[in-house]
Simulated scan of single mutants.
Amino acid sequence: MSFIDTESLVIGLSALGAFLTILAIGMPLIQRDGLSSRLKSVAARRDELARQQRENLSQSRRTRYQKKKSVDLMKQVLDKLNLQNVIASRELKNRLSQAGYRSQNAAVVFSFARLALPLVLAGLFLLFAGANSDLDLDLGMQLLIAAGLAVVGFYLPGLLVTNTAQKRQKTLMQNFPDALDLLVICVEAGLSIEGAFTRVSEELVDSAPDLAEEFGLTTAELAFLGDRKQAYENLAERTGLPATKSLTTALLQSERYGTPVSVALKVLSQENRDSRMAAAEKKAGALPAQLTVPMIVFFLPVLFIVIIGPAIIQSLENL
């Protein structure tokens, strides 16, 4: 049996040590740096998000600029026609606020629509009548129809705003008794009126966003307006509801005469619950009268067929 001499063993161990040393030095360079890679991916994602944010901001600025240009053009046209008083009308702003249009340019857009829509509708009809020779209408009838369309175009924006305001008021009225109950709970818990309004707006933001918005605006006005009475009156004007007017009156009387706010809110809440119950009973009482026509049209013919049908079939078979 042959043995490895000492010199060969030393050379082999030296070579192995050198190999391990080189491997230890080169492994960090060969292995993938996971942290560096993650940092690079995070930086790349951050740059991408920043680019998207800049693009969205640029698009938003372009959109606002285009809207501002359009609104400025509308305002110039209305100024040339001396319609500044119409734009500044408090009644018009209240109507738009009740419909949910609180933008500073809402009155300008509404007034311009009432001015331009009649011309657009009448002009489009006249162009259609002139291009379509199949219409058997003389010039007088065409002008009469165009005038009718102009009248419709003049009243259409007002009808849309009124319809939107009525729908919004109906939604507000449905959720107002619950908001009053929450106000009573918050006031009895020791919160101030501002804190109660803030808490109610936070609680109703999902179930009743319109009412939460109104209470939030009232909270802001109570904080920044010098006259609290004006803040309460603005709430009544923005909504146009008798219930909010009653709430405004109750709060003003409580502040003026020092009566407990919780007592006034309890009475008002009970009145609103009774009013809602009375409205439900009224609808239930009117239901039989409303069902008369559908029963006559749909139910009685089927009943007559079921009752008289067999006798008619039997008599036909006996013939």
Rank of each mutant, 00 (worst) to 15 (best):
Y257T: 08
R276Q: 15
A50C: 03
L225H: 12
Y232V: 08
P157I: 10
L291A: 10
V151A: 15
P294T: 02
K80L: 06
L217Q: 14
A231T: 01
L73H: 11
L115E: 01
V109N: 11
A24C: 08
S41W: 01
L159T: 11
D72P: 00
A146Q: 02
L143K: 05
R276E: 13
G216Y: 10
D227N: 12
G140V: 15
A212R: 00
K229T: 15
E271D: 14
S207N: 11
F3P: 00
V200Q: 02
L39K: 09
N318G: 14
L182E: 08
Y65G: 12
G12H: 13
L78D: 02
G100T: 11
L127F: 05
L211S: 02
I145C: 03
I312T: 06
G216I: 02
N82C: 00
Q76M: 11
L235G: 02
T239Q: 01
K167W: 03
M74I: 08
V267A: 11
A147R: 05
V161K: 08
F304K: 00
S70I: 09
L251N: 02
M1V: 08
S262M: 07
K167M: 06
R46N: 00
R168C: 01
S262I: 07
R38W: 13
E221L: 08
S41G: 04
D79T: 12
A44P: 01
E202Y: 09
D138W: 08
S37H: 11
T198M: 10
I308R: 08
N163H: 12
Q52W: 15
R90L: 09
E194Q: 14
A129Q: 12
G17S: 03
L39V: 04
P28C: 03
Y101E: 11
G226T: 02
Q230V: 09
T6D: 10
N56K: 15
I30W: 13
R54H: 02
V267I: 14
R62G: 04
D138E: 10
L20Y: 10
A231P: 05
L139W: 14
A208G: 00
F128N: 04
L127A: 10
Q53P: 07
Q53R: 15
N175P: 04
E188W: 06
N132P: 00
L119C: 03
R64V: 02
I22C: 08
L81I: 02
L144E: 06
R61C: 01
V108M: 05
E255K: 05
S111Y: 02
P301F: 07
L241Y: 05
Q174M: 13
A264H: 09
R45Q: 12
A146D: 06
D206Q: 12
N175L: 05
A289M: 12
A278C: 05
L300P: 03
D33S: 14
Q84E: 13
L211E: 03
G216D: 08
S89P: 07
L149C: 03
P260G: 03
A311W: 09
I305D: 03
Q142E: 06
L180C: 08
L180Y: 01
L160D: 03
A147G: 09
G258W: 04
Q169L: 06
